[in-house]
Write a protein that binds this DNA or RNA. Sequence first.
DNA 1: GTCTATAACCGGATAGAC
DNA 2: GTCTATCCGGTTATAGAC
Lengths: 246, 246
Amino acid sequence: MNLESASPTGFEATSGLTQKGEQTRARILEAALFLFMERGYDRATMREIARQAGVSLGNAYYYFRSKEHLIQGYYAQSHQDHLQACRDILEHEKNLEDRLRKVLEAKIVTSEPYHQFAGALFKTAADPSSPLSPFSPESQPTRSQATQLMAQVLDGSDVNAPDDLAAELPKLLWLYLMGVILFWIHDRSPGCARTFLLIEHTSRLVAKLIRLARNPLLRPLTHRTLEMLRDFQADDRRLTDSQDSL
Amino acid sequence: MNLESASPTGFEATSGLTQKGEQTRARILEAALFLFMERGYDRATMREIARQAGVSLGNAYYYFRSKEHLIQGYYAQSHQDHLQACRDILEHEKNLEDRLRKVLEAKIVTSEPYHQFAGALFKTAADPSSPLSPFSPESQPTRSQATQLMAQVLDGSDVNAPDDLAAELPKLLWLYLMGVILFWIHDRSPGCARTFLLIEHTSRLVAKLIRLARNPLLRPLTHRTLEMLRDFQADDRRLTDSQDSL
DNA sequence: GTCTATAACCGGATAGAC
DNA sequence: GTCTATCCGGTTATAGAC
């Protein structure tokens, strides 16, 4: 369950840290995630995280600029877990409704251990100026990975959306996923039953809409919507360039 | 620009405070809103707010349980400003597209002075455990007022939605408004031009969808969607009871 | 130059006297 | 209802060890 696996290459282009540094960093991150889960984000103090990791407080701040930055570790881990859980689904399920629903359900299931502190997490992520905002430039790598996953959901399915729509759909589905997560964060029902209900209903609805998109009656509506989306992405081109391997 | 106008009745059913208490409370709130606008939420310290209001730090906490609670004052003010700005629109505009668009635009225009600190504000509001979450029980009064406004947008318009849809639409439009605000908070374009673009496009789209809802092709879709919504509100009935005058 | 530690600072929040 | 004194935890400054 290690997040960092020290690359045994001679140099450390990604981090600029020595092996020992990497290890210390990993220990702090591990301690943080453990304590976040154990008692929630707010009540896990930096002092305690440092102590648990066996380092001083100042040292923890040497590796992580702020408490919030410790959360990035969670993002990465969460997406990896999700990918893992989706492998089977993407391989065997062909029906779009089911693909979509199961992939969304997998996201919630794999995120469940973190539910209690996801609220606090989201609190900081919601601030647009925060590097943790899912819309921030810093999140671009993770965002684009998640979008790719949605593209796979579509590609392997039994539905062939019109080309113009198909080009935008992965991004739209990612946005839909964000909405579901937003709901989940606020969901206090036992076992997050309401979120699963939401997924069940909306995934069917969304899939149906995608199927309907070829219908002549809806074509102008679809067309106008897509035009709008392209408008908005005109300015966003600054970010969509290079890309880490993460 | 006073938020509280001390009711000259003998008793204070709403607040449980004496007149002097009301005044002190109002002074603190006024100082807070002033400083929030002056230098942003984060950099306005409680100590400074207290000093500006001419009270001690502890005293400020006597009236407001936390710094976050001071934000409620902003909510109330913002909605009042919006109502004011909507009066004309609701009275003279009949076309649904235009009503909707103008009401949304009014929300953004009246909120513009607070844009810089709305991010920080939203940050705390996004936490589901916070009383400031727009979905929290504490926000119910404001939420229901805003929903009523949306009902008015529909009622006075030239569109007559099917009954089952009409019953849910105000809430849905309020949710739509929340989405627009979310976008606005993240909008860094000059004059928030992108938000206005978003409103222009989506309000037309939403209005068109409402008009389309009578179409037989879409009826089953609409019906299923509404069923889903009713499902979800089944549990929410605990909150929808009494209501402050605010 | 990379890492680690100690000692402060600052601001939100609370306790308890008056 | 109002104050003062204090706690607590995120964050920073800075000095020194490897």
